[in-house]
């Protein structure tokens, strides 16, 4: 196995598009290295992107937050501006694994591992974040929800990798929240995850709502009907019930060792409701 740690985006693209065997991108490695050790994968090339500055930075570009692909959960959790603008995204990153894992695990790794249960992905989708993707054809942008096409499958082309996440401009009276259900209190994988991002107008009505669910379908899903159920309402109990029903209706989960179809479908609505309440609370207290 060949290990490379280029210091530029171009260098990484060159390696990944190099015509040889398809390489694997290494960010924090908290999934990749575990899979290597378990013998699940045996890549001939591993490209570590952590030495590329753009992947390690959290920046504001014209009021929009940009988070580098390899920024860790711990770094994100200590970034005041990121927490203030996107508390749901930050909390989704912070609850992955243990304190030790937090020092390595990254947003892009969580996304590109392409697990339907990835914690940050529903929060990123609810936030309408876009991936800045570098490749042989230059840089392109892709909504987060379009990156994964199935468990373990990505829509990225050969030579492409995620450099950073770009967030939309944050409007007043807006906030997001993420909740997951695990049977334990930590060190576990989501049985259901729910990210909700809300904006309210100055009359207190919901102006925009995005609801995304994890671990209830082959990929994280953006449930537009659930968002629509809240828009124009004050997110009262009736609206939340409609939203929960829409969320549960959108679930297409499987029975596995982590949960049943019935359980996941029911709890998706419960968590979406609870996350929406938290987001609404935060939005009312915001700016």
């Amino acid at each position: 196995m060949r290990y490379e740690a280029p210091e530029t985006i171009e260098g990484a693209v060159k390696l990944l598009a190099g015509g040889g065997p398809r390489g694997r991108v290494l960010a924090g490695g908290t999934d990749l290295l575990v899979q290597l050790r378990a013998g699940m994968i045996a890549p001939e090339l591993v490209v570590d992107i952590k030495r590329i500055d753009e992947t390690r930075e959290i920046r504001e570009e014209g009021g929009r937050l940009v988070i580098g692909a390899a920024v860790t959960g711990a770094e994100l959790g200590e970034h005041a501006a990121a927490k203030a603008m996107w508390p749901g995204v930050v909390e989704s990153a912070e609850l992955i694994g243990s304190t030790q894992i937090q020092g390595r695990a990254s947003l892009a790794g969580n996304l590109c591992n392409a697990s339907p249960a990835a914690d940050t992905v529903p929060a990123l989708v609810a936030a309408a974040a876009q991936c800045r993707i570098a490749g042989p054809g230059g840089v392109r942008r892709l909504p987060v929800e379009e990156v994964c096409t199935g468990p373990g499958q990505l829509s990225l082309d050969d030579g492409e990798f995620v450099v950073a996440f770009e967030f939309p401009e944050r409007r007043p009276r807006s906030a997001d929240a993420y909740l997951r259900f695990i049977p334990r209190t930590e060190m576990d994988i989501a049985v259901v995850g729910a990210g909700v991002n809300l904006s309210f107008d100055d009359s207190g009505r919901c102006a925009a709502a995005r609801v995304a669910l994890g671990a209830v379908a082959p990929t994280v899903i953006l449930v537009e009907a659930a968002g629509r159920a809240l828009v124009g309402t004050e997110c009262d109990d009736a609206a939340l019930q409609n939203m929960a029903a829409a969320a549960s209706a959108a679930c297409r989960p499987i029975d596995d060792k982590r949960g049943t179809v019935e359980y996941r479908t029911k709890v998706a609505g419960v968590l979406a409701t609870r996350a929406a309440k938290i987001a609404a609370q935060r939005a009312k207290g915001a700016r």
């Binding site: 049977p183 334990r184 209190t185 930590e186 060190m187 576990d188 596995d256 982590r258």
Partner: peptide
């Protein structure tokens, strides 16, 4: 056996 590890065989962690 589908859960031969501490991730999916859930003994309590401290915070539980």
């Amino acid at each position: 056996l589908q859960n031969p590890g501490f991730l999916d065989y859930r003994i309590p962690v401290c915070s539980d």
